[in-house]
Design a protein around this nucleic acid. Structure first.
Lengths: 200, 200
DNA sequence: CCATTATTATGACGGTGGTCATAGAGGTGC
DNA sequence: GCACCTCTATGACCACCGTCATAATAATGG
């Protein structure tokens, strides 16, 4: 999670990051502002200073951060594909495998913050819902680009990107409920051929 | 939603049902016990009488109810398939279409209660997490059975059922965030051929 | 060194939520 | 009529949460 070199993060950044972490573990409702400050080792008084918009703003920034993070993951995994076997199924498998490892390493404590915000705020907090939608888009866009780079026609790329995100998100949900990664590995194996078949 | 004939439901049943409705709309944290009683037109005092286990018990029963409901949906949609075109893709499309209509009819207010419980309770309330896992299983089982009935080999059936539930769940999430059904229709169209190709 | 801004500290307030305690109705059987 | 069980009614308690008010403390820049 803290994989960006050794740079020191500002209290503000840490709070956004911590908010995302706590939200994806406990949900939005169960994540208190005081908890966020404590988790980020940040002063409580900084909350109202950096986030005058209150919890709504913090949640929005957290989910936006998560969307960018997911996008970075896609491009990084695309770049890390072996030169001799650059198929869409490999990219999907790499993404799934990363989530699988995270599940196992954290004992299934963490889900996806975007999903959490969607579930908890979709009908009550429009700003958060919008931020979640943008996060999904921010995630899907580089995925579609990666697919076209791997040989998938542009028209198909967007659709398959949606399919990949949907499937990953749902499988992650099931895995968390079951505390078992089989849903993740299953969808990875089942969807692979379909993705590769789209390469022209 | 209230499609079971004209039978009158007991206050207890109504409370479980209402809990599921409120949870899938607002999440577990934002759903109060008083709200549930009010939504069910049930006396507040009955809560502690029927659910001595408190909110935890109510949430558990709500998600169990949701799992059974999803399972009934599968068998009903399977039975409703036209006799001349009984392919797996048709079943999946029917399920997706049902969720799509629900999204549109309720202006994307409702998601899946099982997903909501998973997101909000997976790491804190083990009983709820277990109930969610059972709900997913309860949902997946008739799906797998339906697939084998449609000609999919048993071994594949279980995997494809997991894939279908994952994809549906994730697409529903995206649709809700974007207030747009395109994710649902996209995954339905993209996954169809894969499902039909599994028929032997 | 001062003025101004950025940041942090802390306590209070109003509201809400789950839960408990206690008592009141409503029915049934004997 | 009485005992008994099921169900309902209601208020209180305590903890927590998001927010605000206010002040203190750095940091900065002239």
């Amino acid at each position: 999670m803290t994989e960006h070199g050794t740079r020191v993060y500002s209290p503000r950044e840490r709070m956004v990051f911590s908010a995302a972490q706590l939200i994806r573990r406990d949900g939005v409702g169960a994540t208190g502002m005081r908890d966020v400050a404590a988790h980020a080792d940040a002063p409580r008084g900084s909350l109202q200073h950096y986030f005058p918009g209150g919890k709504e703003q913090l949640v929005g920034e957290a989910v936006t951060w998560a969307g960018n993070y997911a996008a970075r993951r896609v491009t990084r995994n695309l770049a890390a594909l072996p030169a001799d076997d650059r198929r869409p199924s490999r990219l999907f498998a790499a993404l799934i495998s990363q989530w699988t490892e995270e599940c196992l390493a954290t004992d299934f404590a963490f889900g996806c913050p975007v999903a959490a915000v969607t579930v908890d705020c979709a009908d009550t907090t429009d700003s958060a819902r919008t931020a979640a939608a943008q996060a999904f888009d921010c995630w899907r866009r580089p995925l579609a680009a990666a697919l076209t780079e791997l040989g998938v026609p542009q028209a198909r790329g967007a659709s398959l990107a949606t399919l990949m995100v949907s499937t990953l998100e749902g499988a992650l949900l099931i895995a968390r409920a079951e505390r078992d990664t089989h849903a993740l590995t299953t969808v990875s194996a089942e969807l692979g051929p379909l993705l590769d078949a789209a390469v022209m």
